[in-house]
Amino acid sequence: MTNKLELVCPAGTPASLHAAVDAGADVVYLGFRDETNARNFPGLNFNRKELAEGLEYAHANDAEVYVAINTFPEAGNPEPWKKAVDDAAKIGVDAVILADIGLADYAAQTHPDLRRHLSVQASASNPEAIKFYREAFGVQRVVLPRVLTLPEISALNKEIDVETEVFVFGGLCVMAEGRCALSSYATGESPNMTGVCSPASHVRYEDEGDRMVSRLGDFTINAFAPDEKAGYPTLCKGRFVTEGRASYLFEEPTSLNAAAMLPELMEAGVTALKIEGRQRGRAYIAQVVSAFRKAVDAAAEGLPIPQLNLDSITEGQQKTSGAYEKTWR
C-alpha cells in the first residue's frame, strides 16, 4: 500500500510554476488573479493566458496543475467564481480546489467531468463531513485541516474512500481554516470573503527607535528589538497580553515542517503532500520543492529522510510539526 506520495507545490507566478516543475513537483496548485482564491495578494497569481501556458509547461514535464477557487462567493455576485470554474474547466486543468458548498454544487452540475478537490478552507475535519462532500459533490480528494493529529488522520483515512492531502511545509493556520474572521475584525478583509489574511494593505511597520512595531489596522501585532528576528504581522502569529503576560498566545512565528513524518503519513494512508506558500518567491519554491522531492523519493524507497536544510527560509526561522503531534494543542 506504500504508493509514492504525490508532491503538490505552490505557485504565485509563472516563474514560480516553472521553478516548481523544474524542481520535481508532481502537481502545481495556483489561483486566478482575483478574489476567487485564498491567496489574493497584490501582484500575485495567474491570468487565463498564464494559466494556459503554465498548464502546457507542466504537462510537457509530466506535472499536473490544480486551480484553487477556494474563497466563498459573495452574495449577489456569484459570477467571478462561476467563471473561474468554467475557465478552469475550459483550459483543461487537472482539478479544481473548492471550499464553498454552493460553488461545489455548481461545479458538479455544470462540469461533472472536472475533477473536484475539497479545499482546506472547507474545514472538513471528520469522516461525516468528508462523506458529505463526497456524496453530494463527487469530491475525489480532501485537503485536511491543519488541526488533526497523525493518529486522527490515520483513523480518518480508514473511514473514508476519498484521497487525503495534508500540509507538510510552510505557514500554519492555527485556527480551523475557513472558520476564522480575526483578519476581518481588524481589517475588514478575510480569507473567506476576499482571499486575504492580515492583508499587506493594512500592515505598517513603524520604527520607534527602541523597537520596530508591526501593526495590522489599528492594532499592534508585535514589536521587535532591532536584533530580534521579525515576522509578517499575521494576526494569529502576533504577541499579545493575557493575564498580564505577553506571549505568542496563538502560535509562535513558526513554519510547519513535517518532513520527518513522511513515513508515518504514508502509513496513515495519505495520498498527497502539500507545500504552502503561493505568496513566497520562486527561490523559496525551488528550494523547498527540490528538498521535498528528495524526501518523498527517499520515503518511497524506505530510506531515511535526508536533512532538508530549509531553516533559513522558514518564518521566524523556527519550525514545528504543528498539529500532527498532540502536544501542540
Binding site: A75, D100, G102, P127, E128
Partner: peptide, 26 residues
Amino acid sequence: DISAAALLEGRPHAIGPFINVYNEGT
C-alpha cells in the same frame, strides 16, 4: 459543522453561524 447538517438532512433543522453560508448557492 457540515457533518451535523448531513445527519439532519431531510428534516427541518437550523444552520448555525459556524457553517459558511456566504451566498445564495450555498
